[in-house]
Computed example of a mutant assay.
Amino acid sequence: MGLPSAYGAAERVAGSAADKAADETSARATVALADLRALGEAYRRAMETAAATPETRAAMEVFVAEFSAAVQRCLTEGAGDEEIAAAVAPLRDALGSSPLIRRGQRQDRGHPGDFEMIEYLLSGRNDAEPGTLAWQIDSYLQDSAITRQHRNKIAHQAGLIRRTLSGTSADGGGRRVLLVACGGAADLRAVEPELFAAGDLVVLNDVDADALEYARAALPPATALHTAVEPGNVLQALPALERHGPYDLVLAGGLFDYLPDRYARLLIAYAMTRLCVPGGDFHFSNIAAGNPFAHLMKYLADWPLIERTRQDVEDLVRAAAPHQTARLSVGADQTGYTLLARLTRAAAPVRSG
């Protein structure tokens, strides 16, 4: 009888200690959330009276740093996403005066980072009224590293397409390029039409049919003659995309920012076994871990991203296609905010006679 009694007493002590620890964690989270709410309210009030001044840019940099630190503290103390969202709701609403942030919040096309948002970022324009604080906020964001990385990706991808069209196809026929989740195909629009030859083909894929229509209308006519479109979620459209291949180059710019590991591995495996020709390349980008704008994007602009490290990307490839990948390299754009991965499909094994 003594052993069960002692065991029960120990269990009650352990349970009491666990409850106490949970209460302490909850108290710390409550304090962190209160501090975040106060910070947001202070900035919201400041926005009501502030005007655009030359000093506003420096103030925005301070705001991004302070807001990010306050959110991170909430997460560290165990606060949930819904609690954080509720704490910053007044500030989020106030920042809706910024056309750029409002685009993210509204998600008129049903998902974050749609082609219209990306085209707006690439244009560098500012739709806010000049002289207002909203105009200054968008000026800051359009010149920030988190926006420059989008432009850097497009320039990088355009260079890859040029290089492919300037070389020979791995299978000796026309050069074939696949642009996955291409949006408005800004990278292809930057490529000189004279690089195309008879038999060359670029296949455009996007989940948004309007994005593909926009891309086809915006392409130079000579380039459009060498394009085909395959609308739909890329994972569902893979068989249709494969029928146009195999490809010398497959590009997925930005898609991995939204792909959980399971689906990222699936796409990598398919690219390395079915889409790329032996010796062909699969290039994709992914937002790098440690993005200082991540909390602002998620909680104020409704634009969450899946961040990864270089090791994360290498682990995805090793898990998905270790024997089919002849070469893997992971670099970064000039801002360091975007990882640039290159996978080369292994050559087909030589059969002996």
Rank of each mutant, 00 (worst) to 15 (best):
E119V: 14
Y120L: 04
L121R: 09
L121A: 12
L121W: 12
L121F: 13
L121Y: 08
L122E: 13
L122W: 12
L122C: 11
L122P: 10
S123E: 09
S123L: 01
S123N: 04
G124F: 00
G124C: 03
R125Q: 12
R125W: 11
N126M: 05
N126C: 06
N126G: 07
N126R: 01
D127M: 06
D127G: 03
A128G: 08
A128M: 09
A128D: 04
E129P: 02
E129Y: 01
E129H: 03
P130E: 07
P130H: 10
P130C: 06
T132I: 09
L133M: 00
L133A: 04
L133Q: 01
L133C: 00
A134K: 05
A134C: 09
A134T: 09
W135D: 10
W135Y: 12
W135L: 07
Q136K: 12
Q136Y: 01
I137H: 08
I137V: 13
I137R: 08
S139Q: 13
S139V: 00
L141A: 15
L141I: 15
Q142T: 10
Q142I: 11
Q142F: 11
Q142L: 11
Q142V: 04
D143P: 06
S144N: 06
A145I: 09
A145V: 12
I146L: 11
I146Q: 11
I146E: 10
T147Q: 08
T147H: 11
T147Y: 13
R148E: 13
Q149M: 15
Q149R: 13
Q149T: 15
Q149I: 07
R151P: 03
R151S: 12
R151I: 01
R151F: 05
R151A: 12
N152M: 10
K153F: 01
K153N: 11
K153T: 02
K153G: 01
I154A: 07
I154T: 13
A155P: 00
A155F: 02
H156W: 14
Q157F: 10
Q157L: 14
Q157G: 05
Q157C: 10
A158F: 01
A158E: 02
G159E: 08
L160D: 07
I161Y: 01
I161G: 03
R162A: 07
R163V: 02
R163G: 04
T164M: 02
T164S: 09
